[in-house]
Design a protein around this nucleic acid. Structure first.
Length: 229
DNA sequence: CCAGACGTTGTT
DNA sequence: GTCTGG
DNA sequence: CCAGACGTTGTT
DNA sequence: GTCTGG
């Protein structure tokens, strides 16, 4: 699952990693990207540009755009069939750059936020789909969603689903409009657990209004009893 | 034929 | 409890 | 994903 | 837009 993520890489790093022609001149580091907010995407339409779309896919036929608030993820096993996603799966795929994401690990009644990242804090990309919705006022809204799959053993400690992270060698196929559906589906696998790690963070991240470096600071271990001597 | 749904997560 | 908004 | 609202009247 | 249910 993925309901919050992080993108702090410099524009230069994003440009290099995704082989882009240009990137926005000034991008602030984001430590707490939440659903409904604009997220940077690289679409099949403009594979050499970083553009921004609202997170939470609104199907083109939706009457109420609020449905987008819930469609922040799409099960990769069923994207080919589900009415909300199938046309996007055929024609509108994207990469969503990130350097990490959050999960909330259940511990009894408590939910402890955890920051998940790649080893060496490498920049990576979620597999995404995007869509265009025509609002009654005539404006166009571009939205996107992040695909999910089964968790690898590491991530299964946190959740029974995980976001699809694409290895670099798959970027071009995912954005190729002529790639056959079977080839595309085959890319939607759990990422290698040996290249991932996570640690607990403070509950500062819980509120989407908190978007600071504090969100990814490792939680300090509870003070241990000093031995009495 | 038209009307109405179309999704994810998690929880029970 | 359930929905909306970020 | 979590946080926060969730209603009416009237008044400023 | 397209499928399902009546």
């Amino acid at each position: 699952m993925c309901g919050r993520f992080v993108l702090t890489a410099t524009t230069e790093a994003i440009q290099q990693t995704f082989d882009l022609d240009s990137v926005p001149t000034s991008m602030l580091p984001r430590y707490n990207i939440a659903p409904t907010q604009p997220v940077g995407v690289i679409t099949n339409d403009h594979p050499r540009q970083l553009t921004f779309q609202r997170w939470g896919l609104i199907p083109s036929w939706a009457k109420d755009p609020a449905i987008g608030n819930t469609l922040i993820n799409a099960r990769s096993e069923t994207v080919e069939e589900k009415p909300a996603f199938r046309s996007a799966f055929k024609r509108r795929r994207c990469l969503i750059p990130a350097d990490g994401f959050y999960e909330w690990k259940k511990d009894g009644k408590e939910k402890k936020p955890v920051f998940v990242h790649l080893k060496d804090n490498e920049l990576f990309a979620f597999a995404g789909l995007w869509e265009v919705w025509h609002s009654p006022d005539g404006s166009e809204v571009q939205t996107c969603t992040i695909l999910t799959t089964d968790p690898n053993p590491l991530m299964s400690q946190l959740h029974h689903r995980m976001a699809v992270i694409l290895p670099k060698e798959d970027y071009s196929v995912w954005l190729d409009k002529d790639a056959p559906p079977d080839v595309l589906k085959a890319l939607l696998q759990p990422y290698d657990e040996n290249r991932m790690a996570f640690y607990e963070v403070s509950k500062v991240v819980n509120s989407p209004y908190n978007d600071s470096a504090e969100c990814i600071v490792p939680l300090t271990a509870p003070p241990t009893q000093t031995p009495m001597l």
